[in-house]
Write a protein that binds this DNA or RNA. Structure first.
Length: 254
DNA sequence: ATCGGTACCTGCACGC
DNA sequence: TGCGTGCAGGTACCGA
């Protein structure tokens, strides 16, 4: 999409725009050219410029929430909230639960600047230092985007399972070998999930509409009531930070 | 400064 | 068949 020009923007759902005025946002987008697209954790930032040469003077920040989809072309549906018509093709935003959002700003968004490091880029020493002194539960910390960017409920559970750490363990008490195991597990899980094209539980598809298949490799997520793949103990579910957390009571220690 | 709880939506599976 | 309940890849905001 880089290099394409936005001819027009049809913004149908003010809720997804987080209260911004659809007409005003349409005016801002129309005529701008896509200069660069980058991902920051779960956020996608589309940098826009007025012409080919000039620096970016607009940013379209997109978050898919739980059920958001960005699709190249295709027919709009019941939950299509935005249609960007480009000089070649179209970009559609679809989101049944409307937890995702699309925002326009002329400055680089401050929220992005506050995100923690990329989990696949942070050195182990920094990760271990980040755990130090934290009184929160490790599951909640892994979901906190200011700690690390990009880890969600599935990959938090899968990482903790592989590391043998209980989701309710206090973050600051994970040190040495256990911290190292968690760090390695996060890297492993994310790399495997990316290679598998992500986890398609119900809605997720890539821009071409293809499902991922990492859901077939989940070892603990939504395995409640089934035997642990390692030891056979029945997998349990607890709430941590109001999120479902799946764990093996035998393999995962506080 | 940090933490937990709540609100925001729609759709689906389940039990009755 | 229809209805109520609980659950679902997330974040922002509030008060403690």
């Amino acid at each position: 999409m880089v290099g394409r020009r936005i001819l027009s923007a049809e913004l149908r759902c003010p809720r997804v725009l987080r209260g911004a005025d659809p007409d005003e946002m349409s005016r801002q987008l129309a005529g701008r050219r896509i200069a660069e697209i980058r991902r920051y954790g779960k956020f996608i930032v589309v940098s826009l410029s007025r012409d080919r040469r000039s620096a970016s003077d607009g940013y379209l920040t997109i978050h898919l929430g739980m059920t958001g989809r960005l699709l190249l072309g295709g027919a709009p549906g019941k939950h299509t909230h935005a249609i960007l018509t480009l000089d070649r093709g179209a970009l559609l935003y679809d989101d049944s639960r409307q937890f995702g959002r699309i925002q326009f700003s002329t400055e680089f968004p401050a929220r992005i600047a506050r995100l923690g490091p990329e989990p696949l880029e942070i050195p182990f020493e920094d990760f271990a230092a980040g755990l130090k002194g934290r009184k929160t539960r490790i599951k909640a910390l892994l979901l906190n985007q200011d700690f690390l960017r990009g880890i969600g409920n599935i990959y938090a559970d899968e990482s903790l399972f592989r590391a043998g750490i209980h989701p309710m363990a206090i973050a600051g008490r994970i040190r040495g070998d256990r911290a190292r195991r968690l760090y390695e597990a996060i890297g492993q899980v994310l790399r495997e999930a990316i290679a598998a094209g992500g986890s398609s539980i119900s809605d997720y598809v890539d821009a071409e509409g293809r499902k991922g298949f990492f859901q077939f490799n989940h070892r603990i997520y939504q395995h409640t009531g089934q035997p642990c793949v390692t030891c056979g103990t029945i997998v349990r579910r607890v709430l941590v930070a109001q999120r479902s957390s799946h764990f093996c009571p035998t393999c995962q220690k506080r």
